[in-house]
């Protein structure tokens, strides 16, 4: 199809005149080269100058700024993390010290309390013993007193009973026998 149109196009090139730059194969048409090179040079130079002087430094600058900011932030973060780790270690250390402290204090307190308890126990035990002895003594006293009275009552009763029965006995005899029977009862 293309080859058919090539024929008439050669004739057409002249017909185009000022209107166009025609050739059989337009890219090889040397009459357009000067114009294309001229405008390409302008396009390239304008683009190169504006890019290299204005745009690229700005873009590069902001990228660099971001990179340094990120690096700084990362640095800060790692520094803070190190600080936090340090603080954690310090805290654990203090915690361990405090724990040990608390343990010794608790032990001391326990020992003190134990000592006090045993002291108090001994004291009370001694007091109780003393009072027990006292009570025992009093009981013995009271027992002896009562027994004396019992013996007295017995001998007087015995004397009365014997008098009623008409049996005569000396006071000493009566007393000895009643003491003996009281002793038998209480023994």
């Amino acid at each position: 199809m293309a080859s058919e149109t090539h024929g008439p196009e050669h004739g057409d090139a002249a017909a185009h005149g000022a209107g166009g730059i025609a050739e059989a194969f337009p890219p090889f048409d040397a009459s357009t080269f000067a114009s294309q090179l001229f405008w390409l040079a302008i396009a390239f130079i304008v683009l190169y100058v504006v890019l290299s002087q204005v745009i690229l430094p700005k873009v590069g600058g902001v990228i660099e700024e971001r990179r340094s900011k990120i690096a700084k932030d990362l640095d800060d973060a790692s520094r803070m993390k190190a600080e936090a780790d340090e603080a954690l270690v310090e805290m654990e250390k203090q915690l361990a010290v405090a724990r040990a402290d608390a343990r010794t204090k608790a032990d001391q307190a326990r020992a003190a309390i134990d000592a006090k308890i045993s002291e108090t126990n001994a004291e009370k035990a001694a007091e109780i013993d003393a009072r027990l002895g006292e009570a025992e003594e009093r009981i013995q006293e009271m027992k002896a007193a009562h027994m004396a009275r019992v013996a007295e009552i017995t001998s007087s009763t015995t004397a009365a009973v014997l008098a009623q029965l008409g049996v005569t006995a000396t006071d000493a005899q009566i007393e000895a026998s009643s003491r003996k029977s009281v002793d038998e009862v209480t023994a």
């Binding site: 199809m1 293309a2 000022a18 209107g19 166009g20 730059i21 025609a22 050739e23 059989a24 194969f25 337009p26 890219p27 048409d29 357009t32 114009s35 294309q36």
Partner: peptide, 9 residues
């Protein structure tokens, strides 16, 4: 199909 490469002043 070649016409598209022809430059017009």
């Amino acid at each position: 199909p070649m016409h598209q490469f022809q430059l017009d002043k």
